[in-house]
Simulated scan of single mutants.
Amino acid sequence: MATESVTTDRGIGLTVLFVVVGIAGAVVAFVAGLTENQILASWGFAAAMIAGALAVGAVHLAR
Rank of each mutant, 00 (worst) to 15 (best):
G57D: 02
H60Y: 11
I39M: 12
A51P: 00
M1D: 09
V19I: 11
I12R: 14
F30S: 09
V16G: 09
L54D: 03
I39C: 08
G57A: 04
V20D: 06
G13Q: 09
M49G: 02
G44V: 06
R63T: 11
L40C: 06
S42D: 10
A55K: 03
A41V: 07
A24V: 09
G33H: 00
T15R: 08
V19F: 11
V59C: 07
A62H: 07
F30T: 11
V56H: 05
R10G: 13
V20Q: 06
L61F: 10
F30Y: 09
A41Y: 04
F45N: 12
T8A: 08
T8N: 09
R10V: 14
G13T: 08
D9G: 14
A26Q: 03
L14K: 07
G33T: 00
V28Q: 10
L34V: 13
F45G: 11
I50Y: 00
M1E: 08
T3H: 14
R63Q: 11
F45V: 11
T35M: 14
E4A: 13
F30H: 09
S42Y: 10
G25A: 02
G11T: 05
S42V: 08
A46C: 06
A48M: 02
A24P: 03
F45M: 13
L40R: 09
A48W: 01
F30A: 10
V28N: 10
A48G: 01
G57W: 02
S5E: 15
V20G: 06
V21P: 01
T35Q: 15
V19S: 08
V28P: 05
A24D: 04
A26P: 01
Q38Y: 12
V56C: 05
A51M: 00
E4H: 12
A48S: 04
G13D: 06
V28E: 09
I50T: 03
F18M: 01
V27M: 03
L54E: 00
G22N: 01
V16K: 13
H60I: 11
V16T: 13
I39D: 13
E4N: 12
S42R: 10
S5W: 15
F30W: 09
V19Q: 05
G11Q: 05
L34D: 12
E4R: 13
A51E: 02
G57N: 01
A32E: 08
V27D: 04
I12S: 14
W43A: 05
F18N: 00
S42Q: 10
G13N: 06
M49R: 01
G33K: 00
A62F: 07
S42A: 10
V56Q: 03
V31H: 06
A53S: 11
H60K: 11
I39K: 11
S5F: 15
A47D: 04
I23N: 01
R10S: 13
R10D: 13
T35W: 13
G25Y: 01
V28I: 15
I23M: 03
G33M: 01
T35K: 14
G44I: 04
G44S: 07
N37K: 11
M1S: 12
A55E: 00
I50Q: 02
A62R: 05
G25F: 00
A41F: 07
